[in-house]
């Protein structure tokens, strides 16, 4: 790893993004506090932080922008009305919201019998969505995260997390044993976590080097 890499703008961008992500999670308690006091500022803050990520997943599941927006709205309505059911000890707020959004989206798919058509669509749709404006959405970030995952892990994670497939459905679709799905999933998560860890180390390194350079320059 060269100093040039460490202090690159990309590295800094990632640093700030990663830091912001952590701050977001710390701020969950503030959002929840607002919501429990029936203060709509909590609703607005939750939407600003998690709206796009949730919409991305919902849209990939239902593949219909209008329906996806309805489900997104319903998800935040549930956050507003059922916030007392959220237990911060069990999960972070995003996990809870994601669970509501995915279940609503999957219910909608079952209800409207879209499932067959959707699941015969090409898996490439996910990639196109995140790279452009397919399905009427605008990508917020084509992060290096996905690109750093092995293809076989990325496909699996996309299917399960972003498109709502169950493990057995993935096994059937990819024609691999269920045990392989479980193993690959663990490896995918492990790789994802490693990527985030190395990003964090990289960012901290960037800051240290920047500080050193500033000190040297001031001497």
């Amino acid at each position: 790893m060269t100093i040039g890499t460490i202090i690159s703008l990309e590295g800094l961008r990632r640093f700030f993004k990663d830091t912001i992500a952590y701050i977001c999670l710390i701020e969950d308690s503030k959002i929840i506090s607002h919501l429990r006091e029936s203060d709509p500022k909590g609703l607005r803050a939750a939407y600003d932080k998690y709206g796009k990520a949730l919409y991305g997943v919902i849209l990939r599941i239902v593949k219909n922008p209008g329906l996806a927006e309805e489900i997104l709205q319903d998800t935040f309505m549930k956050l507003w009305t059922k916030v007392d059911r959220y237990d911060p000890e069990k999960s972070v707020l995003f996990t809870w919201l994601m669970s509501i959004a995915r279940n609503n989206a999957l219910d909608a798919v079952r209800l409207k019998k879209y499932e067959h058509n959707q699941k015969t669509d090409s898996l490439d749709i996910t990639v196109h969505d995140s790279e452009g404006n397919a399905n009427g959405g605008a990508s917020i970030d084509v992060s290096a995260l996905a690109n750093k995952l092995d293809e076989k892990y990325r496909v699996l994670l996309d299917m399960m997390y972003l498109q709502g497939y169950s493990q057995s459905e993935i096994a059937k679709e990819l024609d691999i044993p269920l045990g392989t799905v479980k193993t690959r999933l663990r490896s995918a998560m492990s790789q994802l976590r490693d990527t985030l860890r190395s990003e964090k180390s990289l960012f901290i390194g960037s800051i240290i080097v920047l500080l050193l350079l500033l000190i040297i320059a001031s001497l």
Partner: peptide
């Protein structure tokens, strides 16, 4: 959870409507 949140965030999309 944070890793998954980052993953979902990196695949986030903006709704067209005024949700």
């Amino acid at each position: 959870e944070i890793a998954l949140y980052r993953y979902a965030e990196s695949h986030g999309l903006t709704p067209e409507g005024d949700v």
